[in-house]
């Protein structure tokens, strides 16, 4: 089985972030790291693939400046190889044009199963995985909290507001996983040392048979027209508990119609 895991490399969320004043999108220069939400997908892929039995886990990513730090982290966790698409022409891509580019890259890995996070931790659009599935003509199952692979099928517990649906679908297919689907492993020292020698194929837009006018800002239908600061959080109310604190708690919860 060929498992492809979509991996996004993002600016470290713990470091101060800034928006480009012209495009109003996140500045993504400098070192990027593996998006935490993708670590779940990588772990899921590693658990589903029987690597000793010849199954292959391939990472696919798109990032500026040939950035590979996040991919190396996922390779250190145990993935077999990686494909990186990096090209100046990709600057300003929206979710759909990203999906078009990665669809071309993913086809090369002949996937039986594609895994992606529900959404990224920097852009949060949450639309890329289903766009990708549509472009590849594959069924997609979103919000997986449990994934098992059987004889040519994938069975998913799909998280809903009320509980979960059990969904089965034939492979090949795309599945998006929620945080907590599995507990991501830490890279071991042997994994870290092996990561550098694993195959990492770097592709340009031309390598994928695409034209620069179809991708990046030129190929995007979406544009950020305005950005405004989030409302400051209002100061909370401090209640001195003199034995009657629970009454405030009950009143507060009633106001929110929670009880």
């Amino acid at each position: 089985m060929n498992v492809v895991v979509c991996v996004k490399q993002i600016p470290d969320p713990a470091a101060p972030q800034a928006l480009d004043p012209e495009t109003r999108t996140l500045i993504r220069q400098g070192k990027l790291i593996l998006d935490d939400s993708d670590a779940y997908g990588v772990e899921m892929g590693l658990q589903l693939a029987n690597q000793a039995g010849g199954d292959v886990v391939t990472l696919v990513s798109m990032a500026p400046n040939g950035e590979t730090s996040g991919l190396r982290t996922a390779l250190a966790m145990g993935a077999d190889k990686a494909i990186l698409v990096s090209d100046d022409a990709l600057r300003g891509s929206d979710a759909l044009s990203t999906a078009k580019v990665l669809a071309k890259a993913i086809e090369r890995a002949e996937p039986d199963l594609i895994i992606a996070a529900t959404e990224s931790t920097d852009g949060y659009t949450g639309t890329f995985p289903v766009q990708l599935a549509e472009l590849l003509g594959l069924p997609s199952i979103t919000f997986a909290k449990k994934v098992t692979v059987g004889d040519g099928t994938v069975v998913v517990d799909r998280q809903t507001e009320a509980g979960y649906d059990e969904v089965e679908c034939p492979l090949p297919a795309l599945v998006t996983v929620t945080a907590g689907v599995v507990e991501p492993r830490y890279p071991s020292f042997k994994g870290i040392m092996a990561a550098k020698s694993k195959p990492l194929e770097q592709l340009t837009v031309a390598d994928l048979g695409l034209d620069a006018s179809q991708v990046g800002a030129a190929g995007s239908r979406q544009e950020v027209t305005d950005v405004s600061a989030a409302d400051e959080r209002k100061a909370g109310e401090i209640v001195q508990d003199e034995g009657d604190g629970y009454e405030y708690v009950v009143r507060f919860l009633e106001q929110l119609k929670l009880i």
Binding site: T73, A76, Y186, P187, F189, I192, M193, A195
Partner: peptide, 15 residues
């Protein structure tokens, strides 16, 4: 090196 940075990060996550 990239390996040393990854080592630092992995130990950091555990600690």
């Amino acid at each position: 090196t990239e390996e040393q940075q990854m080592l630092r990060q992995a130990v950091d996550s555990i600690a």
